[in-house]
Structures are given as structure tokens and as C-alpha cells.
């Protein structure tokens, strides 16, 4: 019996076919977005380049750092490790869509109040991961916040104030 092994995985020659474009349509921050994309277009590229929403960052590009975190149907995902075509027909929320122009979402406000950011590069992803976490666990313990944000790396603020911010946001939503 033929087996699905490393040979099948590693030795397939790269396709010379550019990949037939696919038409995809999704709701991004409440507005419908329709675009023709190459199938290999990652969701983060789609959001930044096709939708011109550059709040979502590309950090490690290997699904480790969480800077690219967005919500798909209200759940956090790493948009560098999802094809745009997989989000076809779904509802996507980015940092730009959390609150009306000029206003801050309670989690954003809590990050500002608690010095939960410094350089800001991880912040969009941190906030989106926190929004998803609070949706699943409205009143988390400090440990649950720390574990819930394990997929997001910060390299300057440190995590203490971020955790404080998320706990404060949970309190303000109560």
C-alpha cells in the first residue's frame, strides 16, 4: 500500500502553475470585502494589502508570536497561518474594527490605563487575543490570563502590565 510519508511531503516538485485565482468574499469589520486572490494569499496579507488594514502586524511569520492575531467568527486566530480563502464567507474582526473611529474598546482603554504597551508592535495581536479570551472566560483569574495569552509574545513592555490590563478590562465589563 502506498503510504503518506515524508516522500510525499517533501519531494513533490514545486508547481509551475501560479494557482488559479479564487474570488473570495468576507465581512471585515462589518463591511463586505470582495477580491480575487491567489490561493496562497495568507489572511494577514489579504487584510493588510487587499483591505488596506495595516493594524494587524506580521511579526515572526511562523505562528509563534501572535502579532497577527485577528478574530474569525469571534475567535482568535493567527492570520499568518491561515489562507485568505479559508476565511471566505466568514466574519473577520481586526484591531481597526473593535470600536468606532475615535473611540477605544474597553480592552484598548485598559491597555492605555495600565501601561500595557510600549513599542506597540505586539499590541494589536495582544488586544485581539485578550478580547477572544474574555469572550470565552469573562472573569479570568490571573493564571488564566497568563495561560490565555501564551500565544502572544511581547519583547519590551513585559507581561505584567498586559496581564493587569486584561484583568482590569474584565472588571470594567462586569
Amino acid at each position: 500500500m502506498a503510504r503518506r510519508g515524508p516522500g510525499a511531503l517533501f519531494n513533490v516538485p514545486a508547481s509551475t502553475n501560479p494557482g488559479v485565482s479564487v474570488r473570495i468574499s468576507m465581512t471585515v469589520n462589518g463591511a463586505v470585502q470582495d477580491h480575487d486572490v491567489e490561493p496562497r494569499t495568507l489572511l494577514v496579507q489579504y487584510l493588510r494589502e487587499a483591505c488596506a488594514l495595516t493594524g494587524t502586524k506580521i511579526g515572526c511569520d511562523t505562528s509563534s508570536c501572535g502579532a497577527c492575531t485577528v478574530l474569525v467568527d469571534d475567535e482568535s486566530v493567527k492570520s499568518c497561518t491561515m489562507f485568505a480563502a479559508q476565511a471566505d464567507g466568514r466574519s473577520v474582526t481586526t484591531i481597526e474594527g473593535l470600536a468606532p473611529e475615535g473611540a477605544l474598546h474597553p480592552v484598548q482603554q485598559a491597555f492605555q490605563d495600565n501601561h500595557g504597551l510600549q513599542c506597540g508592535f505586539c499590541t494589536a495581536g495582544m488586544v485581539m487575543a485578550a478580547v477572544s479570551l474574555l469572550d470565552e472566560i469573562p472573569n479570568p483569574t490571573e493564571r488564566e490570563v497568563r495561560e490565555g495569552l501564551e500565544g502572544n509574545l511581547c519583547r519590551c513592555t513585559g507581561y505584567h502590565n498586559i496581564v493587569k490590563a486584561v484583568l482590569a478590562a474584565a472588571g470594567s465589563a462586569r
Partner: peptide, 11 residues
């Protein structure tokens, strides 16, 4: 990092 091109089929 961008994958090599492919055709996408949804089953």
C-alpha cells in the same frame, strides 16, 4: 514567507 503556488479546491 509565501508558499509555492497551488490550486485550491474546497471539498
Amino acid at each position: 514567507m509565501i508558499p509555492a503556488a497551488f490550486d485550491y479546491v474546497r471539498a
